[in-house]
Simulated scan of single mutants.
Amino acid sequence: MSTSRTDGLPVSVVDRMSLVLEALSTGPMTLAKVTARTGLPRSSAHRLLEQLSNAGWLARSPEQTYELGLKAYEMGQAALNQNRLLHQARPVMQGFAQRIGYTIQLGVVDRDDTVYLAKVNGRASGSTPTAVGQRVPAHLTAVGKVIMAYAAPAQPPSLRDAAGAPEDPAVARSGAVRFDKEMAQIRDHGAAFDRGEAFPGIACVGVSIGPPDHMYGNLAGLSVCAPIGALDLQKMVAPLRVVAGEIWQRCVATDLARH
Rank of each mutant, 00 (worst) to 15 (best):
residue 50 E to T: 15
residue 50 E to S: 14
residue 51 Q to K: 10
residue 51 Q to V: 06
residue 51 Q to S: 15
residue 51 Q to C: 12
residue 52 L to K: 04
residue 52 L to H: 05
residue 52 L to F: 08
residue 58 L to A: 05
residue 58 L to F: 07
residue 59 A to T: 15
residue 64 Q to G: 00
residue 65 T to R: 12
residue 65 T to A: 09
residue 68 L to N: 06
residue 68 L to V: 10
residue 69 G to W: 05
residue 70 L to N: 14
residue 71 K to R: 15
residue 71 K to P: 01
residue 72 A to G: 06
residue 72 A to S: 13
residue 72 A to F: 14
residue 73 Y to G: 10
residue 73 Y to N: 12
residue 74 E to A: 13
residue 75 M to R: 12
residue 77 Q to K: 15
residue 78 A to P: 01
residue 79 A to Q: 10
residue 81 N to R: 15
residue 83 N to W: 02
residue 84 R to F: 06
residue 85 L to I: 03
residue 86 L to W: 09
residue 87 H to D: 09
residue 87 H to W: 08
residue 87 H to F: 08
residue 87 H to P: 00
residue 87 H to Y: 09
residue 87 H to G: 09
residue 89 A to H: 07
residue 89 A to Y: 08
residue 90 R to I: 14
residue 90 R to T: 14
residue 90 R to Q: 14
residue 91 P to F: 05
residue 91 P to W: 04
residue 93 M to L: 15
residue 93 M to K: 04
residue 93 M to E: 06
residue 94 Q to W: 02
residue 94 Q to T: 10
residue 94 Q to G: 03
residue 95 G to H: 09
residue 96 F to Y: 09
residue 96 F to T: 00
residue 97 A to C: 09
residue 98 Q to L: 02
residue 99 R to S: 13
residue 99 R to V: 02
residue 99 R to I: 00
residue 99 R to G: 00
residue 100 I to Q: 03
residue 105 Q to W: 04
residue 105 Q to S: 13
residue 105 Q to H: 06
residue 106 L to N: 08
residue 107 G to D: 07
residue 108 V to H: 10
residue 108 V to M: 14
residue 109 V to F: 10
residue 109 V to Y: 05
residue 111 R to Y: 05
residue 111 R to I: 00
residue 112 D to Q: 07
residue 112 D to R: 06
residue 112 D to L: 08
residue 114 T to V: 02
residue 114 T to L: 03
residue 115 V to Q: 05
residue 115 V to H: 01
residue 117 L to C: 12
residue 118 A to C: 11
residue 119 K to G: 09
residue 119 K to M: 15
residue 120 V to I: 14
residue 121 N to T: 09
residue 123 R to A: 12
residue 123 R to M: 14
residue 124 A to L: 14
residue 125 S to K: 02
residue 125 S to L: 10
residue 126 G to P: 12
residue 128 T to H: 05
residue 129 P to W: 04
residue 129 P to S: 07
residue 129 P to N: 09
residue 131 A to R: 15
residue 131 A to M: 09
residue 131 A to C: 11
residue 132 V to D: 10
residue 132 V to Y: 11
residue 133 G to F: 07
residue 136 V to Q: 03
residue 136 V to L: 06
residue 136 V to K: 01
residue 137 P to I: 07
residue 137 P to D: 01
residue 137 P to Y: 05
residue 138 A to V: 00
residue 138 A to N: 02
residue 138 A to K: 05
residue 140 L to V: 01
residue 141 T to Y: 03
